[in-house]
Design a binder for these strands. Structure first.
Lengths: 149, 149
DNA sequence: GCATAAAGTTAAGCCCGCTTAACTAAAAAG
DNA sequence: CTTTTTAGTTAAGCGGGCTTAACTTTATGC
């Protein structure tokens, strides 16, 4: 019998190892680009959720509208994002990644994925299918949880 | 047959979901404590690796000795860590968590674990043992990879 | 013993992110 | 058509993190 305790334990151990590695890589990369973490986070947000307005930025990152405006301004200066007027509501602005911004995100993702590929290479042939199945189960569960919240 | 491609895909999907959620929770908590992320990271470092000297801090976080000194100073002021002289080498200082610091880390961990416990509750009874096994395999592989590096 | 290296500290200065407050411009409400 | 609300910008000011440069103190090499 597998007790719930054992499962929680496994998840926590995995998370500790995983987070440690993943965070370090992520921060190192952000630093190497010369961007700050908030700046980088905005780029990631745009990559995942697509173009959005200032108000979404200030809401998602829990900062004032003023802070959001200044934050994006620097990314515009750097050529990573583009700010355009919403034709329907001329007060609103829409920000989106430029090719340069997309490129940067791509490189960052690859960096993050490299460790995982090494990890895959460490697994034995008979373990692989089991791991695939388990990860799919976990991902599905996580998505349901996100939808519920 | 399970192709390596499928495995990499599953890992990446899982990581995207996992990171998103995990990072957000972590940053939110750090913010709620009033500590900055570098400060919080130092506490986590001390929790995982135990007491260490200034030089380890500056090395691990890739900052100058001056920066490390100032960073830890604030944590000492806040009562989260304690700075003591190394009796063997009186130039060196050893920093470690105070009870208050340990308490904070504990609370932060619990916060981080809560989502995972919800996740566990979403899994079906027959999936659970599979997930346990897979996570253990992955954790072991990750540890080996860390040792090698 | 004396020069040199090593571990930390302190201070000045820079950039960053954030907040509040005062603003512009456009949309919605009445 | 005027008032109010909404979206965003700009500027001043604060604290944080980081660096360099100049230090103090302790250990090491010769």
């Amino acid at each position: 019998m597998t007790t719930p305790v054992q499962l929680k334990e496994s998840l926590r151990e995995w998370m500790d190892v995983f987070m440690h590695r993943s965070m370090r890589g992520w921060m190192t990369f952000a630093k190497s680009t010369g961007l700050s973490m908030p700046q980088f986070s905005v780029l990631m947000q745009l990559h995942h959720r697509g173009p959005c307005g200032m108000s979404e930025i200030s809401e998602k990152f829990d900062i004032t509208a003023a802070a959001a405006s200044q934050l994006t301004e620097k990314l515009v200066q750097g050529g990573y994002i583009e700010r355009t007027e919403d034709p329907n509501d001329r007060r609103a602005k829409s920000i989106q990644l430029t090719p340069k911004g997309k490129e940067l995100v791509e490189v960052g993702m690859k960096e993050r994925y490299r460790w995982m590929d090494e990890l895959v290479s460490k697994l034995s042939a008979e373990d692989k299918p089991k791991v695939v199945e388990a990860l799919q189960v976990l991902t599905e569960a996580a998505r349901q949880l996100d939808k519920a919240t």
